[in-house]
Amino acid sequence: MRPFDYAAPRTVEEALAQHADGAAYLAGGTSLVDLMKLDVARPHRVVDVNSLPLHGVTTDERGLHLSALERLGDLARHPAVADGHPVLRQALLASASPQLRNMATIGGNLLQRTRCGYFRDTAAACNKREPGSGCAARTGDNRGHAVLGAGPSCVATHPSDPAVALSALDALLELHGADGVREVPLNSFYRLPGETPQTETVLRPGELITRVTVPPLPGADRSVYVKVRDRRSYEFALVSAAVAVDLHDGEVRGVRIALGGVAPRPWRAHAAEQALTGREFTRANALEAAAAAADGAEPLSGNAFKIELVRRTVGHALTRLGGR
């Protein structure tokens, strides 16, 4: 890997000050260090944020607060996560492997880079890695790529599992930057590729995720994360679905369906949500909603199966939650 400077600040303010153009924040390192070895990430400076005071899980009337440096493994074991948020706990446990979950942080996980094989190979054309160079995946090996929200410039998917659960839970992200603190809904945090696939989020230069908040949400306790993958563990999703149903006397008062593995960001299946809202939670209604889960999908040469798999995965999730 390329030579780089290293800084290990102890406060958020120091971290922001030490982050300069071409720098990268290092948390768990499970993604960044890989990409540095592959010569895909080439930071001049690595700002190690592990010493920042961004630990702890708390709850208050605004919801469940997860500090950004909490490790995925610790969060999965935390009673406040397990109580009332099965979808989040399941998504955490479905991530990577135990060793990786013990290193990876929730803040870093949300900023994980795509697993697109062309992004990770410096010899390939990739607009995300090298804007303007093209997209080898559109005509290449694209079995794992996006069917929703992609564009001519890029068909990569976002690989995180927890982000999908947090999307369904309408989570909020606390961001610290040079201009101060702001809060952004996770569902507005990620950008679609458009003409600038290299810009994946609304983060400003140097801005740091410091906290994730899961607001109180009716139905969060009736939630599930279904992850479909080729291998039973230690593998990214082909398709995943995070589903939470707010049920009242057998009627669906609200439903949240987020998809993973199929889009450049966690993808809310609004058409499916609308199809089920206000209706009786029966198997037939659940399947009708699931059929709408991939609305707008456009397959590539190698991933048309994902469209059917989305419908089936959402159908499986809804019936697991009692839609029968």
Binding site: G117, R231, R232
Partner: peptide, 16 residues
Amino acid sequence: FANGNLADYLVPVHAD
């Protein structure tokens, strides 16, 4: 080899 690496060429893990 589009998946010529251990992340994309899958071999069984214990859970399999």
